[in-house]
Design a protein around this nucleic acid. Structure first.
Lengths: 194, 194
DNA sequence: ATAACCATGTAACGAGTTACATGATTCC
DNA sequence: GGAATCATGTAACTCGTTACATGGTTAT
């Protein structure tokens, strides 16, 4: 359901091909809703059948032809109707938490490499978000921005992803620190799950 | 995949029926991995076929009979082998962010009720986590706990959920404040998506 | 030359959600 | 008398992921 509206909302930024949309999803929408190109192509087809987007073929030389979609009045109306509704509660969904849960089965030092990799991922994602943030603010403070910008929605959403990744990183560092301490303290001791 | 190990890890706390596990998932594992009873029953069946858990029927009077499952050596070994692996990167996955993205289509005041409801949910969940935290710490500080407790994994995982919900709540409050300001400032003005 | 980009999908599979089904017992 | 608890599932469906398929063009 959400993908449908994520696609509609992304078309607010102007008409796009499936390929274009897949890119937008990668760059600026990934924080809001993640989707693979295959899903996007399928969704655009479905949305056109529903009459919520309008597609037209653009013939190109020296490039494959493409299908450009734009949000039409029905689509905009559907989005307006949906946007004020209630969202289902969100939660962290993360394999790493399951691994944590069983962490005490093994020597703490065994877990550290996995978390180091994770830290890298988190840092990269955070840096990406920070860049997107800079491109929103363009030197203004956040306060100025949310007071004066015509469109704030995308920024509000970005901010959630930013905070999430910051806290994720902080948590990973905290976990690594505890694992390090325990690896030292328990060197030689047998791990136990009881 | 993760559900499989979530079930195995939950059985570290002792043998349980599907019904018991469903409860544990609701109370203390929900933060780590969410699953409905139907999934748990199915997974337990699959795990028994794989020989990773051992089930036995317990006959009861004045209660339906039940099937008690316990983690066996194969299951424990599978968990040990899995636990040090790499987890796929996590991300927020939240309808509300999609709604945010399209927020500027409508009057800010229209969005507030949805976010108020959400704030309630977040507060309840946070309170639940705080209670679980108290039952872990039992008066000790966090520092003491992670230094001295035999088993820290579940606490590390809980902490992530706790932080997530705290930040979620803070973000919701921030969004509501911005919506309120904009509703005032733009009273009478026409909303625009450009 | 080789990689990355443009451009669009299909097919199979796995995971998660919703709806439905049953029935005794104990708590309020 | 009605709700909640114990106890276990099946069936249909939606959503997301992985693998596969194609083929020209531009940048290094």
């Amino acid at each position: 359901m959400a993908l449908k509206y994520a696609v509609l909302a992304t078309l607010l930024d102007g008409e796009a091909s499936g390929y274009d949309l897949a890119k937008r999803f990668d760059i600026s929408v990934s924080n809001v809703w993640h989707a693979l190109p295959q899903q996007i192509y399928a969704e655009l087809g479905a949305l056109e059948k529903l009459g919520l987007v309008t597609g037209k073929v653009v013939v190109q030389e020296s490039r494959p032809n493409k299908r450009l979609y734009s949000l039409n009045d029905s689509g905009r109306a559907a989005l307006v109707e949906w946007v004020a509704g209630e969202s289902r509660p969100s939660a962290v969904k993360d394999e790493a938490l399951v691994r944590c849960f069983a962490a005490d089965l093994v020597d703490p030092s065994k877990l550290m490499p996995g978390f180091e990799v994770r830290r890298e991922h988190a840092r990269n994602k955070l840096n990406h978000y920070l860049e997107v943030q800079r491109s929103f603010l363009k030197g203004r403070t956040e306060e100025e921005y949310v007071r004066s910008a015509r469109r704030v929605g995308p920024y509000l959403a970005l901010k959630r992803g930013l905070i999430f990744e910051q806290e994720n990183l902080a948590w990973i560092d905290w976990v690594l620190e505890i694992l390090r301490q325990r690896a030292e303290a328990g060197a030689g001791a047998r791990p136990s799950a009881s």
